[in-house]
Write a protein that binds this DNA or RNA. Structure first.
Length: 234
DNA sequence: ATCCCGAGGG
DNA sequence: CCCTCTGGAT
């Protein structure tokens, strides 16, 4: 069995080697592909952009062929939009997705020589990239400890009792404290052992997708059920 | 606040 | 059938 907790390398390059998807929120999800399973930052960025409003499984089913045909920013920037559109058709939303990632590749090429920058503002300046996507890329690839309050995190937090604040920074702080407490049972005061927010985020995404579902939450198999106010009795 | 505009699940 | 999907741009 793997040990509880998470590990992530903090460096300036490469995906964090192993972020164990295994702790109380935990259990492992065999075969689950996450942001970590990418060859480079370009793939991670594009795949993350595609994942907006789309389920992970559907994106994962197309990315191998996508990156096989257009392996880097230069290739994708010059891609025939109709071909990309055809490939991404199963994801819905017509050609908007293809146009979006092609525009992103062009922006990368123009502003950063095709390289993905480890810079929040520079990333957000790219077309189709917002705060959440930039967080995920910088967190998983560049080793920063960041948690984006995406739909999964927001939903779980809501069910755990988060009433909602408008200040994004405060929201993040609240959510982290809430989830950390729920996940570890700690009261986060004396123990100043810093948790890896990126690792936590990746676990929350899996948990949100496999257990804490929007429509039919699987409370029967949720490790947080006993302390979750919204848990439904089987 | 609304659009994007579609497949698939509950 | 209706809602949801690792948001972003307007």
């Amino acid at each position: 069995m793997t040990t509880p907790g998470t590990t992530a390398t903090h460096g300036d390059r490469g995906p964090a080697d192993v972020i164990e998807v295994d702790d109380r929120l935990g259990r492992t999800y065999p075969g689950a592909r996450t942001e970590l399973d990418h060859r480079d930052a370009f793939e991670l960025l594009v795949a993350t952009v595609l994942s907006a409003q789309t389920t992970d499984v559907r994106v994962n089913s197309l990315t191998p062929e996508l990156f096989s045909r257009w392996p880097d920013a230069a290739a994708l920037a010059g891609a025939d939009e109709e071909q990309v559109t055809a490939l991404l058709r199963p994801l819905g939303m017509g050609g908007t997705r293809a146009a979006r990632i092609i525009g992103l590749a062009q922006g990368l090429l123009r502003d950063h020589s095709g390289q993905v920058p480890d810079d929040q503002e520079a990333l957000e300046a790219l077309p189709g990239v917002g705060r959440k996507t930039a967080y995920v890329v910088r967190g998983t690839w560049f080793g920063h400890s960041l948690l984006a309050v995406d739909t999964h995190v927001a939903r779980l937090s809501r069910r755990l009792g988060w009433t909602g604040s408008k200040d994004p920074v405060k929201v993040e702080t609240d959510v982290v404290a809430l989830v950390e407490q729920a996940a570890t049972g700690s009261h986060g005061k004396g123990g100043s052992e810093e948790i890896d927010l990126t690792a936590l985020h990746l676990r929350l995404i899996l948990h949100g997708r496999r257990v804490c579902l929007a429509r039919a939450p699987q409370c029967g198999t949720c490790v947080l059920a006993d302390i979750c106010p919204s848990a439904e009795v089987a």
